[in-house]
Amino acid sequence: MLKIENLHATVADKPILKGLSLTINAGEIHAIMGPNGAGKSTLAYTLGGRPGYEPTGGGATLLGQDLLAMEPHERAAAGLFLGFQYPVEIPGVSNVQFLREALNSQRRARGEEPLSAAEFLRLAREKAKLLGMDMEMLKRPVNVGFSGGEKKRAEMVHMGILDPTLAILDETDSGLDIDALKTVGGGINAIMRAPDKAVLLITHYQRLLDYVKPDFVHILADGRIVRSGGPELALALEREGYAEVIAA
């Protein structure tokens, strides 16, 4: 589904990704862990097409389409969703309005009929419920005045509504309390665990992986994948730390 080959990328002319390769097949859940500043968010942004994150070598395809050649909104319509480490506030624009416009422009780009206001509200209500979020929150402006945990939960409601093929979730677990972690984990499974979908979880801790069991775990350090393994790799990291595990 996602094929990243020897990807190089710079931020402000500084090389951050230095030959990263990773393949994710449909139906799989992968986790990426790695020290602060290793380039995890940079990978997510580069795949999402964020201006300023310049691919300088290698490539990435989603279902065979050249991701790097597309505009960010085209990548979204092609099925890519980024859960942001720091979700962004948009004053004056309600989540409902924002997501309905976003979903309908994705649908139009794919040649599908846009949803009516009523159909959309039904969908939004269902996904809000799945993530344990009050519908009233969705009527508020995007992320404005949301607590850190509420923002992360809202990201997952966005994901539920947009129903992507591939979700890259950047530290979705950080900021969540213990109960929220469980709800969000359940939500990710419900929305994304399917034979034709895949997830890339970026995280620092095992706790999310207790709920969303990864098939593969990778360690990203200094712009490359330096080790890959099964779920046991995350447990080893938690016990021993990066220095030990990378050296081993």
């Binding site: 964020r50 505009e71 979204a76 969703f81 979700p87 962004v88 924002f98 976003a102 966005h158």
Partner: peptide
């Protein structure tokens, strides 16, 4: 740029 990219990542053109 944050706002623009966030909205575009959700599917809106510029």
């Amino acid at each position: 740029d944050d706002q623009l990219f966030y909205a575009m990542q959700r599917g809106l053109d510029a």
